[in-house]
Amino acid sequence: MALVSPSIKATTQAQVRASITRRDRNIGGLVLYVLLLIAVATTLLVLFTLLARLFAPALPVFRDRGLSFFTGTIGSNPDKVGIWPGLYGSFIIGIGVIVVSIPLGVAAAIYLEDYAQNRWYNRLIVINIRNLAGIPAVIYGILGLTIFVGWLEPLTTGKTVIAAALTLAVLVLPIVIITATEAIRSVPQGLRDAGYGVGASKWEVTRDHVLPYAAPGILTGTVLSLARALGEAAPLILIGAITGLLPATSLDGPFTALPMTIYSWSSKATPPKSVLGFDNVAAAAGVALLLLVLVFNIIAVIFRNRFEKQRIGL
């Protein structure tokens, strides 16, 4: 009768004990577990090596230069350069993202979640947004080069930080829309019904009930997209952020941004007499960018946690 092993029907205490205390020689399982551990450990090791290799050359810069590294300008002497133009450019880009893509993105999300009927053109918009989110950043650079640098030159005066800000605002727009849509979708229908029940109009319900409830979720997406915009370099190369020597901090002239500073310093040869190398200042600028992006990511995580708590009613 035994289908698998004859011992399995053993029922005396000794037989049962023998069969269920059999040592498990599970070599395959052990191998799998060790391989997985190696994968995780390698991933963590890569990250820590990266951080170590970024911070180690950066430390002398912060030690020797102190604040002047943040207020100095770009140039050809690594003992004197600073990231001020980069910070300025990144700051304006951040403003651009906040001013352009957040209102636009949230409005689009409100439309898609609360106003749009299930028609083919609305479904097309949703599919389109998902595709936009997957397009390589460098292609947005081509778009920016043509539209914001070229067609809209009267507005942006060409290869300026305004063109860069608009380009990156467009780049993160799909992320803002997707995260805002998810936040609005999680608003309980009961909350909307309660608003309609007391005679509020659609817009009043959106303004007074839906948006406040979805706000932390929308903020999470906003902050994440800011972090993304600040770290992006490829589109800036396309629209002509400068890598040279000009101390550029204006809205209508040549510009740079923090990631571009890292990019240009990374491949510059250090002049023979300088104490610090371009390696060092590139790493230091990298640390500055990484911390900036990290701070925004941490803020996003805090918002997200608060949002989750609110959703489960804590």
């Binding site: 205490q13 269920i20 205390t21 498990d24």
Partner: peptide, 12 residues
């Protein structure tokens, strides 16, 4: 289980 403690550490 047939007199053998299932939560005995030796049990597989």
């Amino acid at each position: 289980y047939h007199g053998v403690d299932l939560y005995d550490p030796a049990v597989n």
